[in-house]
């Protein structure tokens, strides 16, 4: 059984996204610990990429700050290894296909297993291309997380049937970033998902307020928040972790 399942054992899951190394890895470590101790059920650790084509301006900014700060994949691996001494909740990497491919897919995915990473989210790896990494993910016990989008329509059933870990439902068209309103008919997407898989599903993209999170989690098994947390890091820098802790507590309570 996937370790990720644990994230959905405490009621609706709150999933937080944090870019590693924004503004530095010490701050990321403190932010992860603050989120975990305030109720985050799973954390997506972003490995920054120079050209994050699925991200809006907020997370693009985090990628840029992290890379300018000198973070690398190897530094992030040692950082996670260290983090795993006390952080027990499921952790997944969220990055782009080239970061994995260029490092050497097997070397990368074997490292995930070694340092305690439970899954991998690659927004530029759709269903048609997942064979690129799936056999290696299976070999090393790392879940390759699938995404469905508002445009997926006839693809949802097929994607859900083969999904592992949890299914990431993209709430809206466009890139990541906070939105005042989410208009997609998510309940009909979730319905198709439920008919085709037993693994949990969580909704992300555009969620920032407790009310939105509550609504999205009510439709599914959890809410994923990225840009709203990154905004705190952009605003408070090294001081951000305590604000992130308060924010995560407020969001988890709203679920």
């Amino acid at each position: 059984m996937s370790n990720i399942t644990k994230a959905f054992a405490n009621g609706k899951a709150f999933i937080a996204f944090i870019t590693c190394g924004d503004p530095d890895l010490e701050t990321t470590a403190a932010a992860v610990r603050a989120a975990a101790s305030n109720g985050a059920d799973l954390i997506e650790l972003g490995i920054p990429f120079s050209d994050p084509t699925a991200e809006g301006p907020v997370i693009q900014g985090a990628n840029l700050r992290a890379l300018q700060g000198g973070v690398t994949t190897d530094k992030i691996f040692s950082f996670v290894e260290d983090l795993r001494r006390d952080v027990q909740i499921p952790l997944v990497f969220m990055t782009y296909a080239n970061v994995v491919f260029s490092y050497g897919a097997e070397r990368f995915i074997a490292a995930c297993q070694r340092i305690g990473i439970d899954g991998l989210i690659l927004p530029d790896l759709p269903f048609e291309e997942k064979e690129e990494f799936l056999p290696l993910c299976h070999a090393y016990g790392v879940d390759l997380i699938s995404l469905v989008a508002p445009t997926s329509q006839n693809r949802i059933a097929r994607i859900a049937r083969e999904a592992e870990g949890f299914l990431y439902i993209v709430s809206s068209l466009g890139v990541t970033g906070t939105r005042s309103e989410i208009k997609t008919d998510l309940s009909s997407i979730v319905e198709v998902v439920r008919q085709n898989t037993d693994i949990p599903c969580a909704i992300g993209f555009g969620i920032s307020t407790p009310a939105q999170a509550q609504k999205m989690a009510a439709l599914s098994d959890g809410a994923i928040v990225g840009s709203a947390i990154i905004k705190l890091l952009a605003k408070y820098g090294k001081e951000a972790p305590s604000y992130i802790g308060d924010y995560v507590r407020m969001m988890k309570d709203a679920l």
């Binding site: 759709p126 291309e129 508002p150 693809r155 993209v170």
Partner: peptide, 12 residues
Amino acid sequence: GGQYIPETLMNA
């Protein structure tokens, strides 16, 4: 080659 793009664009 291939199609390494977000799911949102796949049907397009």
